[in-house]
Design a protein around this nucleic acid. Structure first.
Lengths: 163, 163
DNA sequence: TATTGTTATACTCTATAACTATA
DNA sequence: TATAGTTATAGAGTATAACAATA
């Protein structure tokens, strides 16, 4: 049921142009389901998966940085990290220079799970095999431009470090 | 912080190819935040927005069909529809031929809100303006192919009506 | 005073299981 | 028996507000 089955769609004008953005939106929805299923494979919820994905096995990450990445409140991160820590995937550590800050380190078990999940995520769908390198570059560029555009619109007063 | 800042990345092989899929994943995340903000504009949660989007102003939709679209349990849909109905955006109706089934009709107020939201959603980001019609067709086809592939993998024994 | 993270609280989303009413 | 939807319950995510420790 892809629907939008309008009885009569009226004059078929610029259909190829108008289909692009709807296709992008439809794509996004399918990705959500895909992400949940991937996380489920590893016994994680969607947010726990996002959190673990953002952590760095080589270098502890501050709670606040994780909250920033997940775009959710710090109090929320506390609960999410609690569950990851209870499962032994991450560990809270002091930051040393600033004792308010807590850094999140990935445990050995967490690293293994994270690596497995990364490999799983990066399995490209078969459907992109036929796409030429040029098209890949173009599509990737478009998607990144949209990301940047939306991010700029959503966070007008964010850090926005101008490297 | 796009990171993956590996100290030494080794031989830089096929970098343009390997960046494609990561770009797609990153895009998906930004879309989630975007969708939430759009729904918020209209006083809806993300799921309420999805539900309203799937309903048809011209033709009532069964609860079960909505559950299917949202890929969540029927008991969950009950609560989501409760809130939409309490706000006067949708109304439960009998199906006539099968009195177990409840159809969801969009109210006049619901239709207005839905139309506004649709218009808002279909505002294409400025970033896609530079993409040629030919590229749009190709890129849309890629995205739809991925959607179909993932849907087929996720729902092997689904209805899958072969129109 | 301001910041980092936690706790308390409340609401939404989520699934499972038990239930009602149909079929 | 099987199906459509509800209710009860419990776990997870979510934000706000109040708080402790630290800067």
């Amino acid at each position: 049921m892809n629907s939008k089955t309008r009885a009569k769609a009226g004059p078929e004008v610029a259909s190829s142009k108008d289909d692009f953005w709807p296709a992008v939106i439809e794509f996004t929805l399918s990705q959500k389901a895909w992400w949940m299923s991937v996380c489920e494979e590893f016994g994680l919820t969607a947010m726990q998966g996002h959190a673990l994905r953002n952590l760095d096995p080589d270098r502890p990450v501050a709670m606040s940085a994780l909250a920033d990445f997940l775009t959710c409140d710090a109090s929320n991160v506390t609960g999410i990290v609690d569950k990851l820590e209870k499962r032994g995937l991450v560990a809270r550590q002091g930051a040393g220079h600033d004792r308010r800050i807590k850094m999140l380190a990935v445990t050995e078990e967490g690293r293994r799970l994270r690596d497995s999940m990364s490999a799983r995520i990066l399995e490209p769908p078969a459907a992109i095999a036929s796409v030429s390198p040029a098209d890949r570059r173009r599509l990737a560029a478009v998607l990144r431009a949209i990301v940047d555009e939306r991010a700029a619109a959503a966070a007008p007063a964010r850090k926005k470090v101008v490297l």
